[in-house]
């Protein structure tokens, strides 16, 4: 019984990503898309918080939104999996529920 959490706002603008990460359970997935992808980059003030989740929670970032913002794969934090739109659909289908963190 796992949940897909989605975050589409920059974590430097509001607390949504932090709140989301505080409510995940082992086996859950977190997908960062739209401005949420800024939370998937390394060397930021939030990188530790994101990396601190460990392997229990799988982290994903949506490739097309990274590309649109000029963030290449080399700037992704460790442990983030890059997916495309098909991968997004797969995640929704694989999980029991989706929670959109607005």
């Amino acid at each position: 019984m796992a949940t897909l959490h989605t975050v589409n706002k920059s974590p430097f603008q509001n607390q949504t990503l932090i709140s989301c990460l505080g409510h995940t359970k082992a086996g859950d997935a977190v997908l960062m898309f739209e401005d949420g992808v800024y939370g998937a980059t390394k060397g930021t003030a939030l990188s530790d918080a994101v990396a601190g989740l460990g392997a229990d929670v799988k982290l994903y970032a949506l490739g097309p939104d990274l590309a649109a913002r000029g963030i290449d794969a080399g700037r992704l934090a460790d442990g983030i999996t890059l997916i495309d739109y098909d991968g997004f659909v797969d995640l929704v289908a694989e999980n029991d529920r989706t929670q959109n963190w607005l």
Binding site: T3, H23, T24, K25, R97, T98, Q99
Partner: peptide, 10 residues
């Protein structure tokens, strides 16, 4: 987090 994980729809 437990309450959320216990739902069918959020």
């Amino acid at each position: 987090a437990d309450v959320m994980a216990d739902q069918d729809v959020i």
